[in-house]
Computed example of a mutant assay.
Amino acid sequence: MGSEPLRLVVVEDSMLLREGLVRLFSEAGYVTAGAFGDAADIVDRVRDARADVAVLDVRLPPSFRDEGVRAALALRAALPDLGILVLSQYVETVYARELLAGGGGVGYLLKDRVTSLDDFTDAVRRVSERGTVLDPQVVSRMLVTAPDPVAMLTPRERDVLELMAEGRTNASIAAKLFIGVGAVEKNVRAIFVKLGLEESTNDHRRVIAVLRYLERR
């Protein structure tokens, strides 16, 4: 992308929210190349818009069930380099797992918990860079529903894993838990051993590995 601004497509049935997102992204320096109230022909629309990121509501017309998720999955299959940020009013881990199965470049945020505009626009940037952005409530619910391997973790390892899944760095985890970075690194190593995952020096890749493991369960 170089110095070019991010190009976005917004898919949101509420006209007020849709227009609000367009204004927000404009203020952040992003270009909204398309704003739609439904997901009809979404692959062609996004391709024609030459978008870097698609921001979609989970529930769209006509049934307001899972049209947004199905559209996101279709976009992942057709445009694998596209970043996808899904917005939802509810914690729906089934949808989150489906999206995360494809790897990075995905975000899943709860609308009511998006309270910081800076954090929200940063989430768009992160998914455009193949990062993963998950609402903490979604992470917690996924961990609660995971079986024995996660249950084997100590309380501290579980805390670290939850923060890892949110996309935090070791330094950020240390600050959040008021422990040293060395202690975080020790817990990370233990987590990978217990979950049967290979260690990685790349923070993004390790989060994806953990989330893929949870999705397979």
Rank of each mutant, 00 (worst) to 15 (best):
F64P: 10
A35Y: 03
D119C: 01
V114S: 07
L117G: 04
V58M: 13
A171Y: 07
V58L: 15
D66H: 09
I84D: 04
R158A: 10
R130G: 10
Y90L: 08
V124P: 01
A39E: 13
D112F: 00
R126F: 04
P155Q: 14
G102V: 14
V139L: 05
R130Q: 14
A165I: 12
L161H: 02
V127Y: 00
R168D: 00
R125D: 08
L87I: 03
V160Q: 03
R47I: 06
N170D: 15
E98H: 09
G68A: 05
R97C: 06
S172G: 15
E92P: 03
E129V: 03
R125L: 11
A33C: 08
D44I: 00
L56S: 13
V55T: 06
A51G: 11
R97H: 02
L110A: 04
R47W: 09
A165T: 09
A71F: 03
G103L: 11
A40V: 13
S116F: 02
G103E: 14
L56R: 10
F36M: 12
R70F: 02
R126S: 08
G102E: 14
R158K: 13
Q137E: 15
L73Q: 08
Q89Y: 00
P155G: 09
A96D: 12
L100F: 09
L60G: 09
A151I: 02
G103N: 09
A51D: 05
A74Q: 12
R59F: 00
D48E: 14
